[in-house]
């Protein structure tokens, strides 16, 4: 494991045994998250972005389970002499004390749906303070003060009053701010943001991104930013991984991804971004077809049946392996083999 990496995921495989058949949600993911960096994970719905994130905290919805692979975390938690050591999260039992300490203590998460992320029956303050009281040795009053400061920090006015209010009294944007506040309250070393802006309107989205950028500067946490929106990635991420059907097809710096894509899927995604400079009458480029049914993974390269550069007899037979283009830029495409 690299010195600078906070998390390293190795060959992670997650499957969902369902009545209709088994869905291979993650098919061998390799991903590392360096300290203090923002890693963007991009892909269409159902490609396994959220499952990757949830695997780290072991909160995959049932009946999903980790079949194979390691999720290595560099942490001081659970170590005898308060030194940093490496723990394989995938080996921890979901109800073990150590995993519970790591949840929110080291890694916290902001979810896509601010409207349902909070329980309607408990005040926002109760739910935020709960996180702090669970992980830090503080009194209720201290927790309350910290929660007020945090709400203030994420831009909720009149925080001392708002703390006692219930989720239905907040707008979606405000709830997501509170959620981000709750995620940062234990000062975690990593924040997972699972499409945190998708369900908000565009102006709020922009505010939320600004907020995240500020917080990243102030708190110095690593951020795993999951989205299907390349535009958002361009604004916030240092490095990007492109996912397709449970595999990472290309990863590299944001620069690489936007200006020197190797994988045809990445190219299609980038081309599909509408540009103001384009002439008026040009139709939006789309990727033909749609993501195949999870029960019927295509043979060979999973993208071959939608790929504009498909090589018959090659792509539908051989499974591509990642090729290194230097400087951490990798792509799994048979064009280069």
């Amino acid at each position: 494991m690299n010195e600078n990496d906070l998390i390293e995921i190795k060959n992670l495989r997650v499957s969902f045994p369902l009545d209709e058949g088994t869905v291979q949600a993650l098919d061998g993911i390799d991903l590392s998250i360096p300290k203090g960096k923002v890693i963007g994970i991009v892909g269409e719905s159902g490609c396994g972005k959220s499952i990757t994130a949830r695997s780290i905290l072991q909160i995959i919805p049932p009946p999903g389970k980790i079949d194979q692979g390691e999720i290595l975390l560099r942490t001081k938690l659970g170590s005898m002499n308060d030194d940093e050591h490496i723990i394989d999260l995938a080996k921890l039992k979901p109800d073990s004390d150590l995993l519970r300490q790591i949840r929110w203590g080291e890694i916290s998460m902001v979810f896509q749906e601010p409207m349902t992320s909070f329980s309607a029956y408990h005040s926002l303050g109760d739910q935020i303070m709960e996180a702090l009281l669970m992980h830090k040795d503080v009194s209720k009053e201290e927790a309350r003060q910290a929660a007020i400061e945090m709400l203030d920090r994420v831009g909720i006015p009149n925080a001392a009053v708002r703390l006692n209010q219930f989720p239905h009294e907040f707008s979606g944007g405000m709830r997501q701010r509170a959620m981000i506040g709750m995620a940062l309250i234990c000062n975690p070393s990593m924040l997972i943001a699972d499409e945190p802006t998708t369900s908000l309107d565009v102006t709020i989205q922009a505010q939320m991104l600004d907020l995240m950028k500020d917080l990243r500067r102030d708190f110095g946490s690593s951020i795993m930013f999951i989205t299907h929106n390349l535009g958002v990635i361009a604004q916030i991420a240092d490095e990007v991984s492109i996912m397709y059907l449970g595999k990472i097809v290309e990863q590299g710096t944001t620069m690489d991804i936007f200006h020197d894509q190797k994988h045809p899927y990445t190219s299609s995604l980038v081309e599909a971004i509408p540009k103001i400079s384009d002439a008026r009458k040009k139709r939006l480029t789309t990727i033909r077809g749609s993501v195949p049914s999870p029960f019927e993974r295509p043979s060979g390269c999973p993208f071959h049946n939608r790929c504009p550069k498909m090589m018959p007899g090659v792509c539908d037979v051989k499974v591509p392996t990642p090729i290194d283009f230097g400087n951490g830029h990798k792509a799994a495409c048979l064009l280069y083999e």
Binding site: D278, A279, K281, K282, R283, T285, N305, P308
Partner: peptide, 11 residues
């Protein structure tokens, strides 16, 4: 500017 007519196979 107009995209060339792509032959879309019967998906």
């Amino acid at each position: 500017n107009s995209t060339p007519p792509v032959e879309i196979p019967d998906l």
